[in-house]
Amino acid sequence: MNENVIATGRMSKTGAWLHYFANPGRFLRFVRPALPWAAAISIVVTVVGIIWGYAFAPADWQQGDASRIMYVHVPAAWVSMSGYAMLAGVSFFSIVWRHPLADLAAEEIGPVGAGFTFVCLVSGALWGKPMWGAYWVWDARLTSVLVLFFLYLGHIALIRAFDNPAHGHRAAAILALVGVINLPIIVFSVQWWNTLHQGNTISFTGSSRIYITMLYPLLVSTVGFYLSFLTLVCARMCAAIMERRTRTLLVAAAERAS
C-alpha cells in the first residue's frame, strides 16, 4: 500500500502512471460511465457480424454452407487466445508490482475467457464432423486449444481456492504466466506439425486467402467478439469493486456499532 502512495507522488518514475490508473476507485470512476455505451456498441457489432455470417455471406466453393461456422469459431478462438494473453499480462503486473486492480482483472478475465474457449471448441467440433468426418482428433492444434481451456479452468479454481485471497492471487498469477507458453504453441501448431486442422487463412504479413465478401463479416464478427469480451470483463470488474466497497462499508458499520 505504502509503495503505491510513494510512487504516485513521483509521476516521473517509470510505471507511476500505471499506479495512477491502477487504482480501483479511479478505474470505477473512469469506466462506469462508458459501460452502457460499450455494451450497446458491442451488441450491435456482434449481432451484425453474426447475422451477416449466418445469412448473407456467400457459401464456400469447397465447404459450402459449413464454412459459415467460421464466423463464430474463428473470432471465439482469437478472443480466447487474446484473453489469455491479457490474463498473463495482468498476472505479470500482479506479481511484480502487486497492483490490486491486476488481481481484480485476473479474477474476472478467467470465466469470460474460458467461455469463449468453450464456444471455440464446441463450434470447432461441429465444424469438424461434416467437413473432416470426425468431431475430434488429437492433432497439435486441437490438443493445444484444449490445454488452453484447462489452463483457464485451473486458473478459475486456483484463484478462489485459498482462504487468504492474496495467496490465491499469487498462485493463480504464476499458473497464468507458466501457461502463456501454450499461446505460441497454439499459433504455430499448424506450421510446426502436420495437423488435420487447416493452416492459417488470415495473414498479417501477406494477403489473406479469403475472398473479400467473406472477409468483411469475419472482421465485423471479430471486432464484435473483442468488444463484447472487453465490455464483459470491465463490467464484471466494476461490479467486483462495488461489491468490495459494500463489504468494507458493512464491516466498518459493524465495528462502529459494537
Partner: peptide, 29 residues
C-alpha cells in the same frame, strides 16, 4: 441448407453463451 444441424448448433451455442454471460454479468452489476 446442407449441414444445417451443425451450422445452427454452432451459432446456437455461441448465441446462448453470449446471452447467458451477458445476462449474468448485467444482473451481477
Amino acid at each position: 441448407m446442407k449441414y444445417a444441424v451443425f451450422i445452427d448448433g454452432s451459432y446456437g451455442i455461441t448465441v446462448a453463451f453470449l446471452l447467458g454471460i451477458g445476462w449474468l454479468t448485467f444482473a451481477r452489476y
